[in-house]
């Protein structure tokens, strides 16, 4: 019997460690866009205001934060109009929280796909990052108008903004990959996530600046949260109100990379069992 040079695919029982299989990810790359596109289209279909919601949501949120932290608590924004200050913070925060939330529910909400179709499951949480980024881009465009209205020129630190964005995405995906893989077996995770994010929102410098935290050990403790450096770094860069020091930047980068890799490994180890459990 003549056989081709060898099998194209050899299927074996799952081992403890699974390689990343980049070639499969590459073959299915169009699916990443297709899933993100579906997500974006569905979110605003049958809404009156459509894409406007991408802008309205952070704008309303920024307004509320500005009122609570700026007007009532009278916190210091370093001279920046408070709405602009919180809007920029929320842009970064929303990128993180949207990506983390969507990555967590990506598998569970596509259960029928997972149990009936073969494709690299990693694409489901990854597409969460894509739709998070699209929202971010629209929000940023609206932010430019807000800058003009406020009469505040963007800072030179804008050029390092992508660095912070990448870290935010890695951190969100790292957590989201672990939470998403766990949610396949334990749906509790889906319910815990919004609460955890709510907590994290107030523990991060979104509505206020890091300078509002007393110096000394409270600030050191506060900065254990890697989001603190990322959001503050992004905001001071974009607003041109300061620069981050290298130490906190390195700490944030290391945390994000480590969590992302841990997420990938954890996800891959469980990936092949998803269809049996979901």
């Amino acid at each position: 019997m003549s056989t081709p040079a060898g099998p194209l695919v050899r299927i074996r029982p799952p081992g403890r460690w699974e390689a990343l299989n980049l070639s499969a990810l590459w073959r299915f790359r169009d699916l990443l866009w297709a899933l993100a596109l579906r997500d974006i289209k569905l979110r605003y279909r049958q809404t009156v205001l459509g894409v406007l919601w991408v802008v309205l949501q952070p704008l309303l949120g920024a307004g509320i934060f500005a009122f609570v932290f700026g007007r009532i608590a009278k916190l210091d924004s370093g001279g920046v109009p408070y709405v602009l200050f919180t809007y920029v913070g929320l842009l970064a925060w929303n990128l993180f929280s949207t990506t983390a939330t969507k990555a967590t529910t990506a598998l569970v909400s596509n259960a029928s796909l997972v149990s009936k179709v073969a494709f690299p499951r990693l694409l489901l949480p990854l597409s969460a990052a894509v739709s998070g980024l699209v929202d971010f881009a629209v929000g940023l465009a609206a932010g430019i108008i807000l800058f003009a209205i406020a009469g505040w020129p963007p800072g030179l630190g804008l050029v390092v903004a992508p660095f912070w964005l990448v870290l935010l995405l890695l951190l969100a995906l790292g957590g989201g990959l672990i939470a998403g893989a766990l949610a396949v077996a334990y749906r509790d995770v889906v319910h815990v996530m919004p609460v955890a994010l709510q907590l994290l929102l107030y523990a991060s410098p979104v509505g206020y600046a890091i300078s509002a935290i007393p110096e000394g050990w409270p600030r050191t403790l506060y900065q254990l949260n890697p989001l603190a450096a990322m959001i503050e770094g992004f905001r001071t860069g974009v607003l041109g109100t300061g620069a981050s020091d290298v130490k906190t930047a390195l700490y944030a980068a290391a945390t994000a990379v480590v969590l992302f890799i841990a997420g990938l490994v954890f996800f891959r180890r469980r990936e092949r069992q998803f269809a049996d459990v979901i």
Partner: peptide
């Protein structure tokens, strides 16, 4: 279809599925 893994054994596929 590679949706779920086998517990034992081995399969060779000579082509895309």
């Amino acid at each position: 279809s590679q949706i779920t893994p086998p517990t034992r054994g081995e399969i060779d596929l000579y082509g895309r599925v």
